[in-house]
């Protein structure tokens, strides 16, 4: 029972990380959005798995929220924005694909290194997935800093949040539900405000390429 649980969780966490890595070699915002949607659904599956095997009812609610907010609502809003700026593609990120993949693999190794004490201290069967979650956090951080389009940065940020949610679910079967609700609310509000700013950037600069945002360089 324990081993099925552990294996399932590691499999799902690996999938979540893979969808994050997909950001590095695919071009075009639609691909990013669908990667994010699948990643959120996998994350919901992790929550449901832990809820089932760990006998924690609250996590079913978290899984449902993940499906509704991050699996459906946010991708739908992102698609709407993407259609407005259909011509905007992530053609030349600051770091090319080959280098990006090398950096990402180093980051995942680094995640394994820094999470060793955490894995050692935990008694939960889900602990083996923790380095993968940290890997997703670090890779998403890299995506946010190395891409030029505002919309790509938003997706990177959303994946970063998924990574942290995964970390919380695997490491402690989620933070207390009431705090989780606050975090969800923040994530949604933050996303909506970012979305507004993507429009404003487009309005003011005629592009969502943040490379053009250089008025304040000193």
């Amino acid at each position: 029972m324990e081993t099925v649980f552990a294996r399932l969780v590691v499999l799902e966490s690996s999938l979540a990380l893979l969808f994050g890595l997909g950001m590095l070699w695919r071009r075009g915002v639609p691909a990013y959005i669908s990667a994010f949607r699948w990643q959120s659904l996998v994350l919901a599956a992790v929550a449901a798995t832990v809820a089932h095997f760990g006998r924690d009812r609250e996590l079913y609610l978290v899984a449902a929220l993940l499906v509704v907010v991050k699996g459906v609502a946010i991708p739908w809003l992102l698609r709407g924005t993407e259609r407005r700026f259909a011509s905007e593609r992530e053609l030349a990120p600051y770091v090319n694909t080959a280098t990006s993949l090398v950096v990402a693999s180093l980051l995942v190794l680094f995640a394994y290194a820094i999470m060793r004490p955490v894995v050692a201290a935990s008694h939960l069967p889900t602990r083996t997935g923790l380095p993968l979650a940290m890997g997703l956090v670090l890779v998403s951080l890299f995506v946010v800093t190395s891409r030029k389009k505002a919309l790509t940065q938003v997706v990177g940020f959303l994946m970063l949040e998924n990574g942290i949610a995964l970390l919380a679910i695997l490491g402690a079967y989620g933070v207390p539900f009431i705090v989780e609700l606050g975090v969800f609310l923040d994530a949604l509000m933050g996303f909506l405000v970012m979305q507004i700013f993507v429009y404003r950037i487009h309005e003011t600069f005629d592009t969502i390429d943040v490379d053009q945002l250089d008025r304040l360089r000193h």
Binding site: V118, V144, M194, I201, T204, L213
Partner: peptide, 26 residues
């Protein structure tokens, strides 16, 4: 507009890392 984009992006990413830290301490 540029200043607020930088602020919201860097601020949100930074604060997300603080949450990761909070979760690890938890």
């Amino acid at each position: 507009v540029e200043a607020s984009w930088k602020y919201i992006l860097i601020g949100s990413v930074g604060i997300a890392l603080a949450f990761a830290g909070t979760v690890i301490a938890y």
